[in-house]
Amino acid sequence: MGKDEQKLTKKYLPISAKKCLHLDTYIRIEEWKDKQGQGQSRFILFNLDQQLLDGILQAKAEKLRLEISEGLLTELRSYALVDGESRLQSGLTFCTAYRFELGRKRVPSAAEEIILRSVISLDGEIINQIRRDSLQDGTWCLAIATAHHWLISQLLYQLPIQAREVPQRVAWGLALFIVALIAILCIGLAIAHPWLWIIFAGLVWLLQFWGHRLLNQFVPWIYLQLLWQMRSPYPIVRKIVRQLLTQLVYSDTTEKN
């Protein structure tokens, strides 16, 4: 790699400490609602300009990874599975828009235009669309197509997840809560027979032991339920659900590269 190229990377690319490219601010999930506010449609938009385009190609050549925040990844996972009407997603749409600089001959003013669009269906059908006028500049056209596909690949490759172990303290908390309820209900009996407290203590231990294992078993189920609930119309609910979701799983990076 030449010195000039190194300079370029350092100057333009938001590279994190982990040597990953960080482009969260240029990746947006766009959303529409129909007039009645019921039907919804979403797509993912990459906003590129010449600097970013160069940077992405550079990152690809250097085999850097795209770093995606857990929040965005969670949104993506929900988008990958659930459509705007709580049905199974019928197709993921990715668009790449390019911001032309002023004075470029094809475009009269600075404008964002969608150059490429990909629709990926869960059953394995992909439609790639490219604007006809972008074919005029072959090198640029290939470059933007490369960046577009690299970004999609990076996003989708980071989707797989592994369930996180439920913390022991959650199980302890639940067990204590249940036993405390029982204790309050039969408080008279417990005062009359102090040995009952030993049974309560034993019950707490047993409950957390079983509870912890049961909870772990149900993590995928809870995760899917929550992922499905991400479509809530209330932003605050969505925020809490997203927070919970990131707690439940971690990205499965075992198969990377």
Partner: peptide
Amino acid sequence: KQWHGLLNFLVNL
């Protein structure tokens, strides 16, 4: 590659 990632996610889940 893209589909592989998506499929991995689905199968995993």
